[in-house]
Design a protein around this nucleic acid. Structure first.
Lengths: 242, 242
DNA sequence: GATAATATACTTGTATACAAGTATTCAATT
DNA sequence: AATTGAATACTTGTATACAAGTATATTATC
């Protein structure tokens, strides 16, 4: 791949194919508006640009279409991108998933889960300490994924898996932005996650819901202007660690 | 494509590529257990079998992997198939989606929707009258899809779109089975759908939920032994209209 | 006979070639 | 000047070729 990468290397699996790398990179470029809405992408053009053959490009475009980031038409793929409405709706789905998961969690043992969550939380703290924002974002997502995984519901997991890549980009960008604007946000996020763990330990539905909602509110609303301000987004896109 | 098709032709879009056709056919074969669990599929073998090149096969396998019907490994794709737990879980998701939709529907105008639903219901009746079971199944799904579409929520729609193909197969097979075992089921299903329309017209939450749940119960539980009895499944698979 | 090395027949990932279809351009004709 | 029509430069869908890696089977060696 030729030009500057916007998606963090460590988010990728060790041995990922060209196709997979292309997907993550294109996805990040579309969501961060480095590739603008309505742009027409063609397989040949992308193949040339990223110095690969059409096969992996084709594969990538199919994935992005399923994520509704592009529209595959007869002559070229049209970039759809992400609107503010989309972001709200994505959090609708996340809320749906996590509500379902909470419900199930009440009826099952969760010591192993709490242990795992504490581990991830500690890692989040370290990431912040060393100002590794991207790592922090990835661990944040891992935190929630761990909770979702714990109920062993394949179909819920599928919905999550399908949603995750896009949400991951949203969170990475949003966190990069915050790290430049308001450092203190991270402390609150850490606190929220501590609260979630505590609430899960007590197994009280109301408490758990409250903890989740609190985190939700914090995550969802804090970076609103990022998505409308091209300058801000440019900064977030080109941010590279500390 | 060479051998007998299990997926109804009319479920396919007019101009679908080899890859798309392959997906629907393989999906149906896996879900209906014509291809058994643990079977190892290779791109070359499938290409030879269906007389196409590796490209469309490859494309199809990628889709089936996303649906968790197969597992792509280094040497071949392993068929996972669908368990009874999976079916339950799929209906969990469907319930989640439809609950969300109901919630939204209460706050919006729905005359156009009711009209559309009545049209589809009438078509379902005609389909039954002429014993076109597959058409009935497809219309049943269209009925629910129409309701979901009506709230204009792209992300909910994405979850549905992702879930639909597998559910479509489940419903098609289940309906084919019922048509051989108990004709009267269809009348009840029709009644359930009438009830849904009426409830939606009255815009009363409790009533709507009841109508949906009633239909759910009927749909979910009636063909349980189909999924465990290979003989039954064989019949459902090879069923071709009246 | 048991084990190690090699040969082989597979597998996928990527590159490329070709066919069929579509938008565009530009010139000829009315 | 407007419109038709052919040439062209694109597009995707599919087939095929090649490289790199992996499992299996066979052979050679002890």
């Amino acid at each position: 791949m030729t030009s500057k990468k916007f998606y963090p290397e460590k988010g990728l699996a060790f041995s990922s194919s060209m196709g997979e790398r292309l997907v993550t990179e294109l996805r990040m470029r579309i969501i961060s508006q480095a590739i603008q809405k309505e742009t027409v992408l063609s397989e040949n053009q992308l193949a040339k640009e990223y110095r690969v053959s059409r096969s992996p490009v084709r594969e990538a475009l199919k994935v992005l279409e399923k994520e509704q980031l592009i529209r595959l038409e007869r002559m070229g793929a049209i970039v759809i991108g992400i609107s503010e409405t989309d972001i709200e709706e994505i959090y609708d789905i996340r809320l749906m998933i996590e509500s379902f998961v909470i419900q199930r969690l009440l009826h099952s043992e969760n010591d192993a889960l709490l242990n795992e969550l504490n581990k991830i939380l500690e890692m989040m703290k370290i990431a912040i300490k060393y100002k590794d924002i991207d790592e922090f974002s990835l661990k944040d997502i891992e935190f929630h994924e761990t909770i979702i995984k714990s109920i062993h519901h394949r179909q819920i997991m599928m919905v999550w898996t399908h949603l995750r890549p896009v949400m991951e980009c949203l969170i990475i960008l949003s966190m990069r932005y915050r790290s430049q604007v308001n450092d203190q946000d991270f402390n609150r996020i850490l606190k929220n996650h501590e609260l979630i763990i505590e609430a899960l330990a007590q197994k009280e539905k109301a408490l758990i819901k409250e903890a989740f909602f609190k985190n939700f509110h914090d995550v969802q609303n804090k970076a609103e202007d990022l998505w409308t301000d091209p300058e801000m987004m440019k900064k977030a896109r080109e941010f590279n660690g500390s």
